[in-house]
Design a protein around this nucleic acid. Structure first.
Lengths: 322, 322
DNA sequence: GTGAAAGCGCTAACAC
DNA sequence: GTGTTAGCGCTTTCAC
């Protein structure tokens, strides 16, 4: 390459990085040769020398969950705009895999974006000291070097409860999310507050997928609620399916709500009442927190607002069961 | 590190890689020091030296599509078992982004897994010469250095048609997938054969998502089919939603089929008749083809069988519309 | 069985 | 403005 252009390797580097001025003549020769050979600097050598890979690692509990896929679709293009890559790891909801994936990624990348981590706070703090930079999505971590982007689940659930209460609902069943999910805790905190205001809330363990919702729907019904509040939309879809099988009509016999607002939610008759979360925005913001690392104390968490989306799956109760 | 253990860096390397025998005494000192410092070899340096990153790049058109998320969940653990990483890129169905992503990944990784590529065959061949190794999923490429893993969509669609024909269906509407999708071509090839055997098939452009299916369902109905054959399950779910809105009963008024067998398909009443594709197996096989690169001529494509899954969304036609 | 040293490809510091 | 050189951290000769 340098030989073809008859210049030193340093000159090639200067032309390609634009770090120092090079005479027009040489610069052209270098560019011609580079184009001719389809030459690109070896990334490994660049990383070794600079210690920076311009890559951010993204760790998610489950890529098949549309929520995280969307977060990724927010983060990746935002990063690409500045010439950064994203490297994704799926942990299958396993806290141990999560920790290992983050640690290992940390050796390659300049920063890690940890989405809805299931690991303990202790290990999370450990990670903070090991990784070059860390931003956590959907989990509050009090640590000077950990940035956080938080969706306001508490506010969303509060709005959902207010909506149901205003329709006249008094008895709800809440289908809990995965264990150790911070976002589940936020939702439940809001439910406790709502319960203090006269709403009767039964909670049952469930999960985060449609099969989970399908499985527990009948049990939920056993508690005679007027509304079933699912951890997220995907779970709610499973609930709706099961209710249909059971001959229970929504919202006539029981109301159902979700959370997140995935594409199917608007379509599935009668339309799922949910809380819209700007998922791509979450991804973009998380990337930005990582990119502007050091531009200020990261102790403040970025909060992302949500919006109630009322559709056909909620209605006043009390028409009674058939 | 080497200083702490009072040995040369070469000895450290030999202990850690296990390349050459080292006396028990030294080996223990090295291991202790490594554990104490939580030492790990710098990956960039290893890559620079060896030219191998033990990383495979996976390029998919859309991560939000459960299909590709599942393929990934097949490939990643299989690769991890051998100490390999996967690096994922989402191209948003854009052939240009796809080419760039694969090319750029190729500089980092030891091989690229290109899933359902939308780019032209010409560019695909170009890629083959640029990349260290290439396996293509769901696309037939005749090139000596390109391995292929193909799902037998043709066979699946043939079975689906046979099933519908045996129920007595004579007029179908097929909702086409994304342009340039090889798998769509395979399905259509099977449909043409079926058409030659007396099945009347109307094809209309659609896409690969639930909103796509929702959008075109009414148009499909306009062709007065007794069955609607969707490109995939996700599309079919959109169709089912729209039909419900329109007061059209499945399978009484019209039968509906999907393809792929995603988790929701089994749940959604009345249960979606579809073709089950072993998605994780596809991912695993693709990884294996990449890993055993050079272990033989890659000109033969690996074919993955599929299986018809009959559920409630298909039934004999002819009860007529209400 | 062990250490010293070369060199992977690149960029920054240092001559000229 | 340009070339020469050192050195990023590792593994692999090559000597001993």
């Amino acid at each position: 390459m340098a030989r073809l252009a008859q210049v030193s390797t340093a000159t090639v580097s200067r032309v390609l990085t634009g770090a120092k001025p090079v005479s027009a003549d040489l610069a052209q020769r270098v560019r011609d040769a580079a184009a001719h050979l389809d030459y690109r600097p070896n990334p490994a050598a660049q990383v070794l020398l600079s210690g920076r890979s311009h890559t951010v690692g993204v760790v998610v509990p489950d890529l098949a969950n549309p929520y995280f896929a969307e977060v990724l679709k927010g983060a990746t293009p935002a990063a690409a705009e500045r010439g950064w890559r994203t490297l994704v790891a799926d942990t299958d909801e396993d806290p141990e895999v999560e920790y290992r994936a983050a640690t290992e990624l940390g050796r390659w990348v300049d920063g890690v974006m940890l989405c809805s981590p299931r690991m303990s706070t202790l290990r999370l703090r450990e990670l903070a000291t090991k990784l070059p930079a860390l931003v956590v999505v959907n989990r509050l971590v009090r640590h000077p070097s950990v940035a956080a982007v938080l969706v306001d689940y508490h506010q969303g659930m509060t709005q959902l409860c207010a909506h149901l209460a205003s329709l006249g609902h008094r008895r709800l069943v809440y289908l809990q999310g995965p264990p150790h999910a911070w976002s589940d805790g936020q939702r439940r905190r809001a439910l406790r507050t709502a319960a203090g205001r006269g709403l009767d809330v039964v909670q049952i363990p469930c999960g985060s997928t449609a099969p989970d919702g399908h499985r527990v729907a009948e049990e939920a019904l056993g508690h005679k609620p007027t509304a079933i509040v699912a951890f997220n939309d995907y779970v709610a879809l499973g609930v709706l399916s099961r209710l249909t099988e059971l001959g229970v009509t929504v919202p006539h016999d029981v109301s159902v709500t979700g959370f997140d607002d995935i594409p199917l939610s608007a379509l599935t008759p009668p339309g799922l009442t949910t809380v819209a979360v700007p998922k791509r925005t979450v991804g973009r913001l998380a990337w930005e927190r990582l990119a502007t690392e050091g531009a200020g104390p990261s102790t403040t968490a970025t909060s992302v607002p949500v919006e109630l989306a009322v559709r056909g799956s909620t209605a006043p109760p009390g028409q009674g069961r058939r």
